[in-house]
């Protein structure tokens, strides 16, 4: 089993391929791997409850850890205590923690 860190920097309103990373996250989880989906930059936009949030909640329900960069949330005026179901605010330190721990990382 391998642990993965998937970093999403794009938002679904501008990029129609963000669903691919969600599918990858769920697929890896189904195969028994540990998976974190870390949202950063405009990637945090669907973390604000909206029509596009369902995809993130779906990923979280599949057992993937879904985190949103607190700095990116703050820049965009998104309250970290009012995020979509299954999404938690986190520091970018988590990315460095997981890189240092040897997680396989993909940036999208």
């Amino acid at each position: 089993m391998t642990d993965y860190l998937l970093i999403e920097s794009r938002d679904p309103f501008e990029s129609n391929d963000t669903g691919t990373l969600c599918d990858l996250a769920k697929g890896l989880k189904r195969q028994g791997h540990g998976v974190t989906l870390f949202l950063v930059q405009n990637g945090v936009l669907p973390a604000r409850p909206c029509g596009a949030s369902a995809a993130l909640s779906d990923v979280a329900q599949a057992g993937v850890e879904v985190l949103a960069d607190d700095f990116s949330l703050g820049e965009r005026g998104i309250a970290s205590d009012r995020l979509a179901e299954g999404v938690r605010a986190a520091s970018l330190e988590v990315v460095v923690d997981q890189l240092a721990a040897g997680r396989k990382a993909i940036w999208h």
Binding site: R10, L99, A100
Partner: peptide, 10 residues
């Protein structure tokens, strides 16, 4: 290195 991260352009 212990790990690497590629941050690709769009």
């Amino acid at each position: 290195s212990d790990n690497s991260l590629v941050i690709p352009t769009r």
